[in-house]
């Protein structure tokens, strides 16, 4: 599904190249749950951003669903966002001016899903995540864990094939964090959604089935998690 070949990312400053990523080559298949781990400044987030096409690599090629997406025009990239990729953020990034319901609805509007279809999908998600009662509240009326649930629901609304999560539990207490990770595991196993997460926590990484250890921009280890 995702094939990275010799991905490099550096910033040139007065002729000196500061490498963030060096010669990263890896393949991620449909249905995998990959955790990217490493110390601060190792390049985890940059790697996730490149996978999410939010940043372009300076060098190397990136194939997504068999298509070269190394440098993609905006329109095509947005098509991928609409149909294949869901993002989950550490700071949730719900839109403050929208209710829970509207936040989940937004991606469906961009995808131009019909109104009855929209209503049933949102109802389904609200039901599944037990947040039906919260649907008319605004994000600042929710707890962090609830906000992240909405964030995940929003990412799932467009029925993506892959979810990219940047420290999804970084701002949460451990009990809430476990709940979210369990949810991810369930989504991966029951719905077959590919998940790539960046995390600091060894414990969270155990929910997945593969861990990429990164340090100084280089993939040091690529291990499978034995459940």
């Amino acid at each position: 599904m995702i094939q990275l070949t010799n991905i490099e990312k550096y910033y040139a400053n007065k002729g000196v190249k500061n490498y963030v990523l060096r010669l990263v080559t890896t393949t991620i298949n449909q249905g995998e749950f990959v955790s990217i781990m490493g110390p601060s400044g190792a390049g985890k987030s940059t790697l996730l951003n490149i996978i999410g096409m939010l940043e372009e690599p300076t060098y190397g090629t990136y194939n997504f669903l068999g298509e070269d997406v190394t440098s993609l025009n905006e329109r095509k990239r947005i098509e991928l966002y609409r149909n294949h990729i869901g993002f989950v953020f550490q700071a949730y990034h719900l839109i403050d001016e929208m209710t829970v319901y509207e936040n989940i609805e937004a991606p469906l509007l961009y995808k131009k899903v019909g109104s009855s279809e929209r209503a049933s999908r949102i109802a389904d998600l609200l039901d599944r995540f037990n947040i039906v009662a919260k649907k008319d509240l605004f994000p600042n009326q929710l707890s962090g864990g609830q906000q992240q649930l909405v964030g995940i629901a929003r990412a799932l609304a467009a029925q993506p094939s892959i979810i990219l999560a940047d420290e999804p539990t970084g701002n949460l207490q451990s009990a809430q964090a476990e709940e979210i990770m369990a949810l991810f595991k369930k989504l991966n196993q029951e719905d077959g959604i590919t998940i790539i997460q960046v995390t600091h926590s060894e414990k969270n990484a155990q929910y997945g089935n593969r861990i990429l250890h990164i340090a100084d921009g280089i993939v040091k280890e690529d291990v499978a998690v034995i459940a």
Binding site: I78, I85, F87, I95, Y110
Partner: peptide, 16 residues
């Protein structure tokens, strides 16, 4: 800014 960022990754065109 956040709203813009989120909307962009949700698949909003710039014109929209």
């Amino acid at each position: 800014a956040k709203e813009v960022g989120v909307k962009k990754v949700m698949g909003a065109y710039k014109q929209q």
